[in-house]
């Protein structure tokens, strides 16, 4: 499946309206906001149809997956939006991650557990809040929408240390920038090591740079360290996305893709968006002087003009200078 899909679920008392943008969406937030109610309404509609008194408006089929026979049931769902409520421990399993990777469905999962087997985006973690209410035929309808839980941080100060997710091209680029500013830059050795890396750091101000497209499972514990450390996170989709977005690559088609990536990213083919952006950048620069390799950054990207373009692009995304 690809594209963004609006889902409206309503009865005479409640109305939910939200848009699902990519293969994995996580629902969490406070208790009693209506996550289970939303999923139960979808379940009742799927089972009883119009006789349930519940209306589900979506161009894709909305279904609910439960613990019993989940593997068998999941095989039957094609091109659907699959909702899973809290209390289903299977969502943490590798088997489930394998099924998600192979399927052409989108998944909306209500859980506070960090699902380390699934590469979900920080931008697709939502809570539910009530925005307004009105009376309708003696009943009360609450209009709900989803809101982002993890917002981009403000960069007020220059960091003492920069931690980059891995040692690939992103680290090589940011390390070069850090050297010029006399800042220590450290590769974390993978996204799951960032928490440990920040925790062990003795520097005063720490900047974390990671691919937001797959950082969802890590965001909670890394962000929680704000209680103990002066730390900010810069989490763009990916380093490749930053290059594509900087205007360094001149392609008409690029701006259209970057404006609405979900229209071009087939979930069955790309488990997470950063893989798509890596392929896109590699393909667009193939056989050119900017030929991109993820493991070793082409020295052309360090040249004054090219570097300045990427840095400007980063500043634009971050809202200010980050290094």
């Amino acid at each position: 499946m690809k594209g963004s899909h609006e889902v409206i679920v309503q009865n005479k008392r409640l109305r939910y309206r939200f848009v699902v943008h990519r293969n994995i969406t996580i629902l969490r937030g406070d208790s009693a906001t209506g996550k289970t109610t939303l999923i139960e309404m979808i379940k009742n509609n799927a089972r009883e149809g119009i006789e349930s008194g519940i209306e589900v408006i979506c161009e894709k089929k909305c279904v609910v997956l439960e613990k019993e026979n989940w593997e068998r049931n999941l095989k039957e769902y094609k091109d659907s939006i699959v909702f899973i409520d809290e209390g289903n421990a299977f969502v943490k399993s590798e088997d489930f991650a394998t099924c998600v990777k192979k399927s052409d469905n989108y998944y909306v999962i209500a859980t506070r557990d960090s699902l380390f087997n699934l590469p979900y985006s920080i931008r697709e973690i939502y809570g539910i809040r009530n925005t307004s209410g009105n009376r309708y035929q003696g009943t009360k309808r609450l209009y709900s929408e989803l809101y982002h839980l993890y917002n981009k941080d403000a960069f007020a100060e220059k960091p003492d240390k920069v931690i980059v997710e891995d040692s690939n091209s992103a680290y090589q680029f940011f390390d070069e920038l850090c050297k010029r500013e006399g800042i220590y830059c450290e590769p974390a050795g993978g996204k799951s090591e960032i928490y440990r890396c920040v925790q062990k750091s003795r520097e005063d101000r720490i900047l974390v740079i990671a691919d937001g497209a797959a950082f969802g499972p890590e965001i909670e514990r890394v962000m929680s360290l704000k209680y103990a450390k002066k730390m900010v996170c810069f989490l763009p989709e990916s380093f490749e996305w930053l290059i594509l977005n900087s205007g360094l690559i001149k392609e008409k088609e690029l701006s259209v893709i970057l404006e609405n990536p979900s229209d071009f990213i087939e979930s069955e083919r790309y488990f997470s968006w950063e893989r798509f952006f890596t392929k896109l950048l590699t393909d667009k620069t193939k056989d050119s002087y900017l030929a991109y390799r993820k493991d070793k950054l082409n020295p052309t990207y360090f040249q004054e003009v090219n570097r300045a373009k990427i840095v400007n692009g980063i500043q634009e995304v971050a809202g200010s200078k980050i290094i």
Binding site: Y195, R196, Q199, R221, V222, S224, L225, Y227, A228
Partner: peptide
């Protein structure tokens, strides 16, 4: 406090 808690719980 939370500062002490987050430095342990995340592991």
């Amino acid at each position: 406090n939370m500062s002490e808690l987050v430095q342990v719980a995340g592991y």
